[in-house]
Design a protein around this nucleic acid. Structure first.
Lengths: 216, 216
DNA sequence: TGCCGGTTTCAATCAGCTTTGACTTTTTCC
DNA sequence: GGAAAAAGTCAAAGCTGATTGAAACCGGCA
């Protein structure tokens, strides 16, 4: 446990310390407990005591790994960010080149945003609006994710021979619809109708892909 | 100040007490201060002290009008709910029957969701996810609003001679896109591209309106 | 194999701070 | 003159993080 936890934490960072391995496991346990707390209690109701309880650790034990609450939050943001990035990189190119890449990617993102991880992330984003310290932590991760998402999409959907503006509209539209839907569903259950909206969106995305003239 | 503040508060409830008028004004001031706090500090960081400060009142003075914090929250929810309902009733039918009702209503809702009022409401909704007491207060208002929104839309857009499912898709889609966009913009500034998405949405709504066969 | 010094991990307690809402006093208005 | 409104005070409760002390684990050595 030097100070190696600042930005790394990609995957499981292969600790070679034959005893620091347990330390890494404990850190991961704490981070995941914190995320559970964000989901169950909300960000601002998350206390260090609650995190420790969920991790099955004592408060002091936890504070040994993370000297203060903000350190846990930092680590959790890194952790979530890494997970989201990996999810995108994994999901987007998965489906082979074919008619159904639109559908499968739509469904992949729709699955992602209903995962508890998204709830936790959302809690962080909302809290960051009025918490500068959290915002400073979240912003870089957020921007990196947005860039990567956009870049990956552009790289992968090579069959979209449309101009940049059209492609951006397709991306933005998809994201707004799906995230708007996810957020709506976080609160009021109102199932059923969402499928119809997804189907419609899929249809319109195909239309966008095929309609315009080639670019570049 | 009987117990007249439970569900009423529609418009300014014409208090006839020749002195209780100031009391009503103070109540409104407190409620609006609370809403400002939700916007500026977030729901969970809103303390009775902060509300009192913003209202230019002392804590004790405020607690005279609202015995406890939850009472202020209740009143604020009623207040916001009333405002949103009135905004819908006012905006939707405003534009005369014509080609541009789609556009004007889209813009009206787009304006609404960027109003601080929406931010406050959003803070409440998010907090309610992990706060049963708040959820119990918010849920009835939320449901009433959804019903009214849907009902009003159906009543007003009589030129939409499409089947119910198509109409619902149009409504849901509009709402998801606009709210998703609003929420995105609450956090990361990324102006510019949104106009394109709105234009596209408008186009597709017109298409929906005109494409399908008549109903009933 | 079994023991030992030192380091890492865990547990418990405690003081400081903030928020809440009850209580008391002062001011304002009819 | 008297009641309502506003202001000030304060104890109780909860949260945070620092400190102190105990336990487990590592490597080395007889």
């Amino acid at each position: 446990m030097t100070k190696s936890t600042e930005t790394a934490e990609e995957r499981d960072p292969v600790v070679s310390g034959w005893q620091a391995q347990k330390s890494a496991a404990t850190r991961k346990l704490i981070i995941e407990s914190a995320i559970k707390c964000f989901v169950d209690l909300g960000y601002s109701n998350t206390t260090t005591t609650a995190i420790a309880e969920r991790a099955g650790l004592s408060r002091g034990a936890m504070l040994h790994h993370f000297p203060s609450k903000i350190d846990i939050v930092k680590a959790a943001v890194d952790y979530l960010h890494g997970k989201r990035l990996r999810a995108v990189r994994r999901a987007v190119p998965r489906a082979g080149a074919g008619e159904d890449r639109v559908r499968s990617n739509l469904e992949a993102y729709w699955r992602d945003v209903r995962h508890p991880m998204f709830v936790a992330f959302f809690e962080l984003v909302v809290a960051a609006r009025t918490d500068r310290e959290l915002a400073d932590i979240l912003q870089p991760a957020q921007e990196a994710f947005d860039r990567e998402w956009h870049r990956t999409a552009r790289e992968v959907f090579t069959e979209w021979q449309v101009d940049d503006a059209t492609f951006d509209v397709a991306l933005d539209l998809s994201r707004y619809v799906i995230e708007g839907m996810a957020i709506s569903n976080l609160m009021n259950r109102q199932g059923g109708r969402d499928e119809k909206v997804l189907d419609y969106l899929e249809d319109k995305l195909r239309e966008l892909r095929d309609s315009k003239e080639k670019r570049s």
